[in-house]
């Protein structure tokens, strides 16, 4: 079963979790043998931007030990052989240029997504 996980919602409780729960879930699925690919769309394209820094949070004496690093988590997914696609119009709308992004992803246009979906048995939109 080939699965395309489309990630749209971004920064959902990432500070409380110290990571994105959907990137985490997909990495866990991959570790359990799932043939999964990712498509970043909407605000989740911002996860591919280098230089995200959520460090330094503290509540009284309690410090956040590990800030979320979605760009690094994406890189780790790709190292685990999870293909990552990203919508180029969503990048452009958010003023994101290639130079500021992590490498290894495949850009796709919105028009190309219908054909992309045909390559998968299941499409899960998160």
């Amino acid at each position: 079963m080939k699965i395309l996980s489309i990630v749209e919602t971004a920064y959902r409780a990432t500070l409380e979790e110290q990571d994105d729960t959907i990137l985490w879930l997909n990495h866990s699925l991959k570790n359990n043998g799932a043939d999964v690919s990712l498509l970043l769309r909407g605000n989740a394209v911002n996860y591919a931007v280098r230089g995200q820094n959520a460090g330094g949070l503290a509540f009284g004496d309690r410090k956040l030990a590990h800030a979320p690093e979605p760009d690094r988590d994406l890189q780790k997914l790709m190292e685990a052989k999870v293909p990552v696609y990203i919508i180029e119009e969503d990048l452009r709308e958010r003023g994101l240029a290639q130079a500021g992004l992590i490498g290894g992803m495949e850009k796709v246009s919105r028009k190309a997504v219908p054909a992309l979906l045909e390559r998968f048995d299941q499409v899960w939109h998160w």
Partner: peptide, 20 residues
């Protein structure tokens, strides 16, 4: 998540309803 994946593989239909 392993249980979810195993259930999905055996199912006739799968629906993911995410929190926004």
């Amino acid at each position: 998540p392993k249980d979810f994946y195993e259930a999905a593989q055996k199912s006739d239909g799968i629906l993911v309803i995410p929190a926004k």
